[in-house]
Design a binder for these strands. Structure first.
Length: 349
DNA sequence: AAAGCGGGGTA
DNA sequence: TACCCAGCTTT
């Protein structure tokens, strides 16, 4: 197929080196992809940009060079290393997946898409990506970039997510049996660097003459998506208990729900009609002061505003069950999500 | 089928 | 500052 060949040539010329990638065309270079690296990077790249993932990927492979090492780590250590990347269920599923692959598959990932998709944290996209990139299997890889590129190339005007099966069948028809992994990465790279959501660089696109969306002048409006809902704003209070030596009192969040299993300074309930000066919500009796600024943070489905209250206590102060002191030297390495790091960075006066 | 789940990049 | 982007699991 002409479109396929043209894009593979574009990929060979525009290949971007990344820590988890092997050079294009495995049959020519002889370099074999590392399935552990491919899997780890693909999990990290879910909803997350390449630039952000790079440092975390290096940190993880440095801490746990092989899947076996990751499988034998404590979940707490994995959550600490993941802190700041977001969507923390990914870290828990990553760890569960490593244990299952070690136990059930002798530490080697299965090559087939349908077997990969049975593993925790691996859905339709990631199963196809690992199967094609790590094992050279013919799988149709569809992520957000592919949805955009293919819907423009074929002028698919049906709304997402309904149009997904049609996009997948077009991608399957375009995917070659020779270099399926390189082709999948080529379409995703094209979407990331040329066929961008806004102001696509059509003049340098290897598919410009084939692009049905551009011929019809509708490419920039594709893909069409379901309208998004407005995010409500929830309010709450965060409580920073500081000891004389600078240690901060932390606790662990519940194992289910938002920021599951992560650490935090204690907070009140978060709700739209929350009063931010009701110290009855404080975890301990103390002499509380209000910080001059509030912390603002946006999650997937709501905005959050936290009033920050703080108090200074002496070394003998008794903490509630389950709390612990984190001294300044250990604070950085705690499993603190970004919103809680914002709380701890808030000027107190 | 719809809702829940974070963080970073860009205009 | 406001808006945009993106895959898996649970309900």
């Amino acid at each position: 197929m002409q479109a396929t060949t043209a894009l593979l040539h574009w990929y060979d010329r525009n290949f971007r080196t990344l820590p988890w990638r092997t050079p294009p065309n495995p049959e020519l270079s002889g370099a074999k992809p590392n399935p552990y690296h491919v899997w780890l990077s693909e999990i990290m790249l879910q909803q997350t940009t390449v630039a952000t993932v790079k440092t975390y990927f290096i940190k993880f492979t440095d801490l746990w060079p092989r899947l076996e090492n990751l499988a034998e780590a404590e979940e707490e250590e994995v959550l600490k290393a993941w802190a700041g990347l977001g969507y923390y269920s990914r870290a828990r599923n990553l760890h569960r997946c490593a244990k299952i692959v070690l136990r059930d598959y002798n530490g080697r990932f299965p090559e087939e898409e349908h077997k990969l998709q049975q593993l925790p944290g691996i859905g339709p996209y990631t199963a196809a990506a690992i199967s094609s990139i790590a094992f050279n299997q013919h799988a149709a890889v569809v992520d957000g970039n592919v949805e955009r590129v293919i819907s423009r190339l074929r002028a698919i005007t049906d709304r997402l997510p309904g149009a997904k099966p049609v996009i997948k069948s077009h991608m399957a028809a375009l995917t070659p049996h020779e270099r399926p992994g390189d082709f999948a990465q080529a379409v995703m790279d094209l979407g990331a660097t040329v066929c961008t959501p806004r102001s696509p660089a059509c003049t340098i696109c290897p598919w410009v003459d084939l692009c049905e969306g551009r011929k019809q002048g509708i490419h920039e409006s594709l893909p069409r998506k379901a309208p998004k809902r407005v995010k409500p704003t929830r309010k709450g209070m965060a409580f920073v208990i500081a000891r004389e030596d600078g240690a901060i009192a932390l606790r662990r969040r519940p194992d289910k729900g938002l920021l599951a299993g992560m650490s935090e300074p204690p907070t009140s309930q978060w709700s739209e009609d929350m009063k931010q000066d009701d110290l009855g919500q404080a975890p301990v009796k103390a002499d509380w002061s209000l910080a001059p600024s509030t912390v603002k943070h946006t999650f997937t489905h709501f905005h959050l505003e936290l009033a920050v209250w703080h108090t200074q206590v002496d070394a003998a102060f008794p903490l509630p069950e389950g709390y612990w002191w984190s001294v300044p030297e250990t604070l950085e390495g705690e499993a603190l999500p970004t919103v809680m790091r914002k709380v701890l960075k808030t000027p107190l006066a």
